[in-house]
Design a protein around this nucleic acid. Structure first.
Length: 643
DNA sequence: AGCTGGCAAACA
DNA sequence: TGTTTG
DNA sequence: ACAGCT
């Protein structure tokens, strides 16, 4: 029994990976079974195509000017909303070619809906109705977003068809000499900056000859940001700031591929040691191609310079502003931000009033301390927090050492949070370090320094050790992460008691007399507990900016077929741990020379060699061992600012 | 032209 | 399981 | 929808 053809809505066959005649065959075959196949994507509900996954499907629709979002990302798709479905070509093979009766729903890989018109218009009355807002912004913002992506896709096709020569998007705005694109032609990526004409080529050479020499990593197109120096204050900071904003926008709309692409470009430009004055310099950089070149051209040739059309769109959009607001809640990502927006919420008050019980525990904390978490932490406060934690840690584990990592270690004046490592120089203290986590958290909570525990990561404990081995053998399967706690911190209230009297009177709400409100801001603090053998790997893995760390892992994978992580290095082929120097020795933090000379680490912390800021020099020693093992030139943390 | 993109743990 | 975090 | 690799 065949399914009834009339059951299916209009079908459009996606041209993806099909040539014209293949596609025409498919269309006529489907029609021969009395299904309706339309030639305009706008008229279709079902799309059939050789498409791999939902992400790809979304983009294929976008190329056709259908700007949908994944319906499965929405909590309660309103009844009656138009849902575009993309089905695998396999459905065609089964049902049309083989004549097997199969439900098309089993072949759907993507359900797309248009971004909510206005959440207030199509919400049924049983859902919460947040307080009324000005009616215009959402629809307007949506329209802008949709219109932009539509015009972009038209623009792309126009460029592909006409081989536009002029650099920069402004010149590309008008369509080429009326050669309209062929609808069924597979999409071809346009050359944004194309070959120059003869006279401008001479011009280019003239300018190029006056440019500073390109650094080696550029000439060799070295793609790994961990093999080059990336300072915190790059010469092209202004252009980078623009790219950061575009990347944030890509994060907010969950365009993960775009995010990565911009991250590599950013890392490349951030490492370039000269002010970019010519577009050829962009093209020379690994990870930078036509798109970035076009942006740079627009950025430098705009009036006044430094403007980008895309950014001005983004910055005036209520939609993106709102997503950004929600995204900045600790514990909420892009997905949650979009979800909040779709439900009609527009600010934190909306969430508090209408969505509080639906927020996760950590999101509630994130909302509660929203403003305080946005505030940056000055270096002296970071050091003060470090000292407090270190002192408490040493009460429980004498001889413990700490190191501040993250942005602080890269030299930033202001930090978003505090990332702190705690270990012990004695390898025999491995267990004690890992088991310090819970007691230390308890102690700091008791002291009122940790006000909230966000999450506590306690990797699967030691398998009951039969041997007297210092650390247990773990296969790379249960080779778990470093124990850590992510928490909220508040510096103690050091005010004198007399000042308290006036405060007391205003604080009669809960009858908590005697407890003055601590005026110090709440801070995000992460404490990690690497066992001594992981000191170098954890330090390395928590000191670089994100792209530096990503490239480091890739570099190690490609160069050594090893796996690098904060827990150490493993050989991907054998699954065995690659030892860092003499890890079975009694002490870490000693140079080879020290060990040869029989030097030991003094149990008295006051006798240990320290850097100016009070950190034990053993940390750096361990990190250098790690770089050496990975055959990487060691770089100052301040040169790992890949953004 | 098509495929791939860093990674693992915790929570809901 | 998907989402978020470092 | 961006770039590198095969």
């Amino acid at each position: 029994m065949m399914s009834k053809p009339t059951n299916l809505p209009n079908i459009y066959v996606l041209p993806t990976r099909l040539n014209d005649s293949q596609r025409a065959d498919i269309v006529s075959n489907i029609r021969s079974k009395h299904y309706t196949v339309v030639e305009s994507p706008k008229d279709a509900i079902i799309f059939i195509g050789d498409v791999l996954g939902s992400k790809r499907a979304l983009l294929e629709l976008r190329f056709l000017g259908l700007n949908t979002t994944d319906a499965t990302t929405i909590k309660a798709p309103a009844k009656g909303t138009k849902i575009l479905k993309v089905a695998k070509l396999e459905w065609y093979a089964k049902v049309i070619v083989e004549g097997i009766d199969a439900d098309i729903d089993d072949y759907i890989i993507y359900n797309g809906i248009y971004p909510a018109k206005s959440p207030f218009n199509n919400q049924p009355s049983n859902t919460v109705t947040p307080k009324k807002r000005s009616a215009s912004p959402p629809t307007l913002a949506e329209k802008q977003a949709e219109e932009r992506s539509r015009s972009e896709s038209i623009l792309r096709r126009a460029m592909a068809a006409t081989h536009q020569a002029a650099p920069g998007t402004r010149h590309l705005r008008h369509k080429g000499p009326s050669q309209d694109s062929h609808p069924s032609q597979p999409f071809k990526r346009p050359k944004l900056i194309s070959q120059q004409s003869t006279d401008s080529q001479e011009e280019a050479e003239r300018v190029a000859s006056n440019l500073p020499p390109l650094p080696q990593w550029v000439i060799k197109k070295q793609k790994f940001s961990c093999t080059r120096s990336t300072p915190a204050d790059p010469p092209n900071q202004d252009f980078l700031d623009a790219l950061f904003k575009i990347r944030l926008n890509r994060i907010l709309i969950s365009d993960e591929i775009g995010v990565r692409a911009y991250s590599t470009s950013i890392a490349s430009i951030a490492a370039f040691p000269h002010k970019i004055t010519h577009i050829s310099q962009i093209h020379a950089l690994p990870g930078c191609e036509g798109k970035i070149a076009a942006l740079w051209y627009e950025f430098t040739h705009s009036e006044p310079p430094g403007r980008l059309g895309v950014l001005e769109e983004i910055e005036k959009s209520v939609y993106y502003k709102t997503l950004e607001l929600f995204y900045n809640i600790w514990g909420a990502g892009a997905h949650s931000a979009q979800s909040f927006y779709k439900q009609g919420f527009r600010d934190l008050d909306d969430l508090v009033e209408h969505h509080w019980k639906k927020l996760t525990r950590v999101q509630q904390i994130g909302v509660k301390f929203y403003d305080e978490f946005q505030d940056k932490i000055p270096r002296d406060e970071v050091i003060s927090i470090r000292d407090a934690i270190q002192n408490h840690a040493r009460q429980l584990l004498p001889g413990a050492e700490t190191a501040v990592v993250g942005g602080f270690r890269r030299g930033k004046e202001l930090s978003a949070d505090v990332d702190l490592l705690i270990t012990h120089p004695r390898v025999s203290k491995s267990r004690d370090v890992e088991e310090l986590l819970v007691p230390l958290v308890n102690l700091l909570e008791k002291e009122g320094l940790i006000t909230h525990v966000l999450t506590i990561h306690q990797p699967s404990r030691f398998v009951a050790t039969t041997s007297g081995d210092v650390w247990p053998k773990r296969s790379h399967h249960n080779f778990d992460g470093i124990p850590k706690v992510l928490c909220v911190w508040q510096q103690p209230d050091l005010r004198e008691d007399e000042e308290g009297d006036s405060q007391m009177e205003s604080l009669d709400e809960k009858g908590l007399a005697g407890k003055r409100k601590n005026p110090n801001p709440h801070r995000r603090v992460d404490i990690l507990f690497p066992p001594p053998r992981c000191a170098g790997s954890t330090l390395t893995s928590w000191s670089g900016a994100t792209t530096f760390e990503r490239d480091l892992r890739k570099y190690v994978k490609e160069g050594k077929y090893w796996k690098f992580s904060s827990e150490g290095v493993t050989d991907r082929a054998s699954g065995l741990r690659v030892p860092v120097g003499k890890e079975k020795g009694e002490f870490i933090g000693l140079t080879e020379g020290d060990e040869n000379n029989g030097v030991e680490v003094d149990d008295n912390v006051d006798n240990r060699a320290r850097r100016e800021d009070g950190e034990w020099i053993g940390w750096d020693v361990e990190e250098k061992k790690m770089f050496k093992l990975l055959e990487l030139e060691w770089r100052e943390p301040t040169e790992r600012c890949t953004g």
